[in-house]
Design a protein around this nucleic acid. Structure first.
Length: 593
DNA sequence: CTAGGGTTAG
């Protein structure tokens, strides 16, 4: 058959096809074309086309155009109103979604099940859920169990009081189905009430896989891995979720071996399973394993999604693997029209930690919408790179844009002061946390302050703060004090701090190394050599920390006093040369900031 | 409407 040019009829059919799939359209350019054609042919008032158009516009974040379509319909029906509600929810504007509900009530359009379901998805806060519950009671929307089941789920997302409300609702329900029980069990598990969840699980009339998986998750969340494993073996049938839940649990408890064993053993894996392993590897600093799995995924049949990207970016960031990070950035840009906020945040963090502040800054500036984490990551990134003043400027900007700083923000702000040597400002910000922002300082913030005071030479104040803060000083606090002692040649204090460190964590080699530096800095080489010896004696007990770099696609791993690399001599020569050069021009480990 | 995965912290 000869190939023919598309006729008028087939072109029309193509358009109809596109119209029927319109609500799934996520390509903005394609949508804009369709939008124009629809308006030209006056189809935007068509009761079948309008909701689809609104849906597609909201998917492509064109909420203004979506509202425009809605406003052209003289008397919108429930279905169309629901579409607009969902559009606002997709656009993270729940208040506007509720305004649509009020508009419906004012114009006499009766809300239905879906109206409330969409609103429930958006509503955070007990007040909203109670309000919807009242509406549902009033309109008697109890023809099936959809509504009460959704209400139970929504109540559980409202904190402690919500948990009680869910229990009350469950108690008065005359009819319950599997989903009712499952929602209760899931909610109770999330609220940490494992015993009550277990009780319901035991008394429910029948159980399918979802119930088993929910109770499995309960044991995993409680850290009871042997019980979880028992359930995994006992349950009638296991699916990907069952295996993944248990694998994730073992890895979280630190038993990565067992996680890997089960991962290899499970009959069928999916995207989530692989992502779990990648993120657990990343979490434990096993970058090489995380990358290997990610590569396997890229070659295989699973397409990474945002959560996968975030996990592997976290692995790249932790290991400082810029080339890997860039490669992932490229894959992300290839696979989607626009980055999700979380993904952009992870990219910013990765570029900061891999030393490319410029790239991080560009992404931060080009983001359409930012969230609190975006600001936190950028402030911290600037602080890390020594741009203390700029970080503090950004802190002012975020407040101007209406973001309330949280505890993480203040870690960034305090470390900005630290890196810029702004001792007095740091103290001022620290006290403002409680007085101006109602945030109680955590051990991390005390850590920043102790570091700041120590670097500034106010060692006694630093020590006093460590001893009188409402937390027991941890290893990080003592190490930071030890560093300050080294910096200011405070040998006596260093001994005292070291005693505390040894008491807290006897089997750690790093401390001896640190102490050796204290002596070395003070010119006491005999004791320095002794400390090194001690370090080697204890080193066998703990695996040494390793650094990993990637060069031309090959990984190179180094540990303390490592001479196994084939070019070890040249590497050490170069490092020594650099150190001497640094000492000459600017940096000296004994000079205070 | 119910089950497993994610980002920021000294």
């Amino acid at each position: 058959m000869p190939v023919r040019a598309p006729t008028f009829v087939s072109r029309r059919r193509l358009f109809e096809q596109k119209l029927s799939d319109l609500h799934k359209c996520t390509n903005l350019n394609e949508l804009k074309q369709l939008h124009a054609v629809i308006y030209k042919s006056n189809l935007h008032r068509d009761p079948f086309v309008a909701p689809k158009l609104i849906s597609a516009l909201s998917l492509c974040r064109q909420i203004g155009l979506a509202l425009n379509v809605f406003d052209q319909i003289p008397s919108p029906n429930v279905y169309l109103c629901n579409t607009l509600i969902r559009a606002y929810i997709r656009n993270s504007e729940p208040e506007k979604a509720f305004q649509v509900l009020y508009r419906m009530q004012a114009s006499g359009v009766l809300p239905d099940n879906y109206t409330y379901l969409f609103l429930l998805k958006a509503s955070s806060g007990l007040r909203f859920v109670r309000m919807i519950h009242a509406h549902v009671e009033k309109c008697n929307l109890y023809s099936d169990l959809f509504m009460p089941n959704s209400l139970i789920d929504a109540y559980f997302k409202c904190g402690m009081l919500g948990v009680e409300a869910a229990k009350v609702l469950f108690g008065v329900m005359e009819e319950r189905d599997l989903v009712t029980y499952n929602s209760m069990i899931t909610g109770l598990v999330k609220a940490g009430e494992l015993n009550e969840a277990k009780q319901l699980f035991d008394e429910m009339p029948q159980r399918d896989r979802v119930s088993w998986n929910a109770i499995l998750d309960g044991y995993v969340k409680a850290g009871e891995m042997s019980r979880a494993f028992e359930v995994l073996e006992k349950m009638p049938t296991r699916d990907v979720v069952s295996w993944s839940t248990v694998i994730s649990g073992y890895a979280k408890m630190g038993d990565i071996e067992m996680a890997k064993t089960l991962f290899d053993k499970m009959p069928e894996k999916n995207l989530v399973t692989l992502t779990i392993m990648i993120s657990r590897y990343a979490e434990r600093g096993l970058a090489k394993e995380a990358i290997a799995l990610y590569n396997q995924m890229e070659e295989g049949s699973f397409k990474p999604d945002d959560i996968t990207f975030v996990s592997i970016l976290s692995a790249s960031a932790q290991s400082g693997l810029l080339s890997l990070g860039k490669r992932i950035h490229h894959s992300i840009m290839k696979s989607r029209y626009k980055c999700a906020i979380v993904t952009s945040n992870a990219l910013i963090d990765m570029y900061c930690k891999c030393g490319s502040l410029n790239r991080a800054w560009r992404i931060f500036n080009e983001m359409g919408r930012k969230d609190l984490v975006s600001w936190n990551v950028m402030i911290h990134g600037l602080a890390m790179h020594g741009h203390g003043k700029k970080a503090l400027y950004l802190f002012d900007c975020m407040k101007l844009e209406g973001f309330a700083p949280d505890n993480v923000t203040f870690v960034g702000v305090l470390s900005a002061c630290n890196h810029a040597g702004m001792l007095e400002d740091g103290i001022r910000y620290f006290y403002s946390m409680e007085s101006a922002y109602n945030i109680a300082p955590q051990i991390e913030h005390y850590g920043c302050m102790i570091d700041l005071l120590g670097r500034g030479g106010r060692l006694n104040e630093a020590l006093r703060l460590a001893n009188c803060m409402p937390f027991k000083p941890n290893v990080v606090i003592w190490c930071s004090l030890l560093g300050a002692c080294r910096m200011h040649n405070a040998l006596d204090l260093a001994e005292e701090v070291l005693d505390q460190l040894v008491k807290l964590d006897p089997a750690n080699a790093g401390k001896y190394s640190m102490l050796s530096n204290v002596y070395a800095a003070a010119g006491d080489w005999d004791n320095a050599a002794n400390a090194r010896l001690q370090m080697w004696k204890t080193a066998n007990k703990t695996p040494p920390g390793a650094s990993l770099i990637e060069l031309d696609g090959e990984f190179h791993e180094f540990t303390v006093m490592d001479t196994t690399h084939p070019k070890s001599d040249r590497i050490h020569q170069t490092v020594n040369g650099l150190t001497q050069h640094l000492r000459k021009v600017a940096y000296s480990p004994t000079i205070a900031v």
